[in-house]
Amino acid sequence: MRWIWFDRFEEFESGKRAVAVKNVTLAEDHLHDHFPGYPLMPASLMIEGMAQTAGILVGEAKQFSEKVILAKVRKASFDEIVRPGDQVRYEAEIEQLTESAAATTGRVWLGDRQIGAVDIVFSHIDQNMSGLDFPEENFVFTEEFMALLRTYRHNGEARVTL
């Protein structure tokens, strides 16, 4: 299984806002355990989906020069269950962005209904953990995540050049 919790960017405004969609399918093994006979998309994995959407938005804002790590989930609330066949939309906005960190607000949509909210604080770890050594390479934004950003197309043209 690959640790990618959305399928495609639908909108991407550099440094501001991104929308990603996730199609929930019974082909995902975890749904058969959560729960047997009653498959529900786990809220924890929707938080991860938002974190990946917002994390790439924050990373792109500084041209992926920083290692962006989830520092804190400020808030996560869900009002409805999500089932196989549903398409969830993660809408993330950058609220604050500094040299060392970023704060994002996020809304989770099912069709035209907002069904959740996930607000996150990210840390640029190289700026916050002085004294600790991290690998030189950017292990956060791997090729797998870069490929996700390239999935965004606007009017048939790539909007994000990497």
Binding site: A71, K72, R74, S100, A101, A103, V121, S123
Partner: peptide, 13 residues
Amino acid sequence: SIDFLDILFRLEK
């Protein structure tokens, strides 16, 4: 330690 980041952001805002 991570809460300090959060607190700083909220004070700024």
